[in-house]
Amino acid sequence: MKKHSVLKKVYMAVIILFLYAPILTLMVLSFNEGRTMGKWTGFSLHWYEDMFADEDIMDALKNTVIIALVSAVVSTVIGTLFCLALPRLNSKMRSVFLALNNIPLLNADIVTGLSLMLMFVAFGITLSMGTVILAHITFCIPYVVLSVRPKVRQLGMTHYEAALDLGATPWVAFFKVVLPELRSGIFSGFLMAFTMSVDDFIVTHFTRGAGINTLSTMIYGQVRIGIRPTVYALSTIVFVVVFILLIASNVISGKSATVKARRKAES
């Protein structure tokens, strides 16, 4: 028994080390004075200063955030509307739509990106930041549908009908009853869409216009000429921000979960 649990802990530790070693290495190197990767030459913050002064990086950061925000908002709206309408469709239509929903999810990013590019070019649409956003919305919608749909199914029509029965207008019933119940699903769909957009490289790579960089494409561009340690500084900041956001959202959702559990226990 005891021996097994030690073995398990060692195994978990090795895997966690494997997962975190590269990230931690980047973090440590971002504080390295020199720019050689294999050698520690002293502590310094100058890569951080350089990073904030680097217009390319700041530009890419700004683009990444804009693209992610716009495509997450639009895909959340479209995906949520679709989920709300789904119960009204007959089962044949529904299964067709849900199968279509799986295409961007399961398809290879390279195919998604290339086919979108081919379409843009064929229709004479100049590749720009706009085309990147359109492409991102395409692959974000399925994630929104995936996280909102279970909530809609859980809710059913009874809440909405009960509200109507109690004299609410359809709009009031929707905003006061339906939407609050779907909030957590919509929020996690939004978050998922945002993350997928930030993380994307391949689709962006094929659909972006000249001179437009996101963090991913900027890093990819640097790979050939050699990555500068300013990017390590950037990745450290990204990791820390992501970590804080995730902890915060977990704490929030954890709290609401306990509130919910308590409410259930009381009822």
Partner: peptide, 22 residues
């Protein structure tokens, strides 16, 4: 780690494995 940019993660391995790497 999944939430860290895919390119950054791959780049990190480059830094580790490079000839003059970590």
């Amino acid at each position: 780690p999944m939430w860290v940019n895919f390119l950054l993660r791959t780049m990190a391995w480059q830094v580790l494995l490079e000839k003059g790497g970590v």
